[in-house]
Nucleic acid binder design. Structure first.
Length: 467
DNA sequence: ATGTGC
C-alpha cells in the first residue's frame, strides 16, 4: 500500500482507482503499524469510494477494524450527493461517555471507596442482557425515543443543568414510528442499565493538569475525584442498526449503488431510506442519552447514601458512535463518527456558553486500569471535520483476550495496584484486560501533538464497575 | 457493542 507521510503524525493513502478522496490517518509510526495488522486501512479505502464523500476518509489514532467502516473512522458526506450508512455509525448507536465532577479530593473518597462501588453496582444494573429496574408504562418508550435525556430529567432522573452539558442537549429530532417494535421491546426493559463489553462505571481522580486555563473553565483541579460513565443504547440501538442494514441492503439496487463491501450498505441522505435511518438512529441516540442520564442519577444516589451528600456536576457527555448534520467551512455535511469524538473549538455555536471561550471538552476513556483523558477541541480539528479519537482501541480481539487472560488474575492485578473491580462476569474482565488495548497515553499524545484536541487533564482509576 | 448466528 502506498503510504505518504504528510506530517509528524499524519499519513495519506493518495486517491487512486475508484477512490473519490484520499485516506488520511492520524497516527504515530507505532500506531500506524498496529493499524496495518488488520483491515483498518483497507476499510478506510473502501469508505473513500462512497458517493458524496468529501475531504478524506479519516482514521483516528485509535483506529481498528470494524463492521464495514473502521472504528476510529470519520467520514463526511455532501448533503445532496452523499449517502448515510448504519455501518458508519456502528451497532451501539450513541455509545458515549460522560464525566461527573465531585467536590471531593480523592483522599476523602478512599475510606468508603469499596462501599461506594458496591452501592453503584447495586444501583445500576449491569452485564450482558441486564434489565433496567424501571418499569416503563405504555407509551413511555416513545417518549424516551423522542425526548432522550430531557425525558429522563423531566422524570426526576437528574438536573435540568445536565442537559446543557450534553451534546445536542441530549436530544436529536426523531420519529419513534420509524423504530421497530422489536427495537422498542428490547430497549424498554433495558433503559437505565450499563450493559457489557467495554462499558463501565469508573471512579477516577485528576492526576495531572496540562492546561490550567481550560481546566479552570471545565472546573477540574488536581486531586479531584470524578466519575466516568461509559455506555450506549443497549439492545435498542443494536436492533435499529440491524433493521436498517437490511433495509439499505435491499435498497442498493434501487439507487444503483455499487459498493466495494456489502457491509457498507447505505442510501442517499435525501432518499426515504436515508432520512428514515437518520431519524431512527436519532431515536436510538436519544435512548442512549436517557440511559446515561438515569445512570447519572443513580450514581448521585450512591454518593448520597455513602457520604451523606452528592454534588456531582456534569463536565460533559460526548457521543462516540453517531452521524450528525454539521456545518464545516460554510457547507453542511452528514458527518459519520464511528469510534470517534466530536472535537469542536472555541466559538462554535454547538458549545455551551460556559465553555465557549476554550472549546468543547473531549472525554477519552482508557482501557480498564489505565488512564483516561479530558482534552479540549481545537481549530486544527477543522481539517478533520471537528473530530478526534475515542479511546485506546483494541489490539487483541475479544476471543484472543479470553484465551490469553483469566478474569480473576486481571482483577487481582488491578487490586494490587489499588484499583477495585466489581464485575458482573469475570469473562468480561478477561475480555477487557488492559493488555488487550493500545496505550491510551500514546493516543492522547498524538491528538495533542497534531493539535486537533489538546490535553487538559489526565485521570487515573480508583475503582471500576464492569458489566 | 449485542437475547455473543443464517
Amino acid at each position: 500500500m502506498n503510504f505518504k507521510r504528510i506530517g509528524d503524525n499524519l499519513w495519506e493513502v493518495p486517491k487512486e482507482g475508484n477512490m473519490k478522496v484520499p485516506v488520511r490517518i492520524v497516527a504515530s509510526e507505532e500506531l500506524l503499524e498496529m493499524m496495518k495488522m488488520d483491515l483498518t486501512i483497507h476499510q478506510a479505502i473502501n469508505v473513500s469510494m462512497l458517493p458524496g464523500i468529501e475531504g478524506a476518509s479519516f482514521v483516528m489514532p485509535d483506529g481498528h477494524q470494524g463492521y464495514g467502516f473502521p472504528i476510529g473512522g470519520v467520514a463526511a458526506f455532501n448533503m445532496e450527493s452523499g449517502i448515510i450508512s448504519p455501518g458508519g455509525v456502528g451497532y451501539d448507536i450513541n455509545c458515549g461517555v460522560r464525566l461527573l465532577k465531585t467536590d471531593m479530593d480523592h483522599a476523602e473518597l478512599l475510606g468508603k471507596k469499596h462501599s461506594l462501588l458496591v452501592s453503584m453496582f447495586k444501583n445500576v444494573p449491569s452485564g450482558l442482557g441486564s434489565k433496567g429496574k424501571v418499569r416503563l408504562r405504555q407509551g413511555d418508550m416513545d417518549e424516551v425515543l423522542e425526548h432522550g435525556a430531557k425525558w429522563a430529567v423531566e422524570n426526576d432522573y437528574g438536573w435540568k443543568e445536565d442537559l446543557k452539558y450534553t451534546e445536542e442537549g441530549g436530544r436529536m429530532p426523531s420519529d419513534p414510528r420509524l423504530i421497530s417494535e422489536q427495537a422498542k421491546k428490547r430497549g424498554s426493559s433495558q433503559l437505565g442499565s450499563l450493559g457489557s463489553g467495554n462499558h463501565f462505571l469508573e471512579l477516577q481522580y485528576v492526576s495531572e493538569i496540562f492546561d490550567e486555563r481550560a481546566a479552570k473553565a471545565f472546573g477540574l483541579y488536581e486531586g479531584q475525584a470524578v466519575v466516568m460513565i461509559h455506555t450506549g443504547s443497549r439492545g435498542c440501538g443494536h436492533q435499529v442498526c440491524s433493521d436498517y442494514l437490511r433495509t439499505m441492503e435491499k435498497a442498493l439496487k434501487k439507487y444503483e449503488l455499487v459498493l466495494p463491501d456489502r457491509e457498507l450498505a447505505c442510501a442517499p441522505i435525501a432518499s426515504q431510506e436515508g432520512r428514515e435511518y437518520f431519524k431512527a438512529m436519532s431515536g436510538a441516540a436519544n435512548f442512549a442519552w436517557a440511559n446515561r442520564q438515569m445512570i447519572t442519577h443513580w450514581t448521585r444516589e450512591s454518593f448520597e447514601s455513602v457520604y451523606g451528600h452528592s454534588e456531582l456536576e456534569m463536565l460533559y457527555d460526548v457521543a462516540h458512535n453517531i452521524a450528525k448534520e454539521e456545518q464545516h467551512k460554510g457547507k453542511r455535511f452528514m458527518v459519520h463518527r464511528k469510534g470517534a469524538t466530536r472535537a469542536l473549538w472555541k466559538d462554535r455555536p454547538e458549545i455551551t456558553p460556559d465553555y465557549k471561550s476554550v472549546g468543547q471538552p473531549v472525554i477519552i476513556p482508557g482501557s480498564m486500569g489505565t488512564a483516561s483523558y479530558v482534552l479540549c477541541g481545537h481549530e486544527n480539528a477543522s481539517e478533520f471535520f471537528g473530530s478526534t479519537a475515542h479511546g485506546a482501541g483494541r489490539v487483541l480481539s475479544r476471543s484472543k483476550a479470553i484465551k490469553r487472560f483469566r478474569g480473576e488474575d486481571v482483577s487481582d492485578d488491578l487490586g494490587k495496584r489499588g484499583i477495585d473491580v466489581v464485575a458482573d462476569q469475570m469473562r468480561t474482565v478477561a475480555e477487557e484486560a488492559p493488555e488487550a488495548y493500545k496505550d491510551i497515553d500514546k493516543v492522547a499524545d498524538v491528538s495533542h501533538e497534531v493539535g486537533i484536541a489538546t490535553k487538559v487533564a489526565r485521570l487515573l482509576p480508583l475503582g471500576v464497575v464492569k458489566g
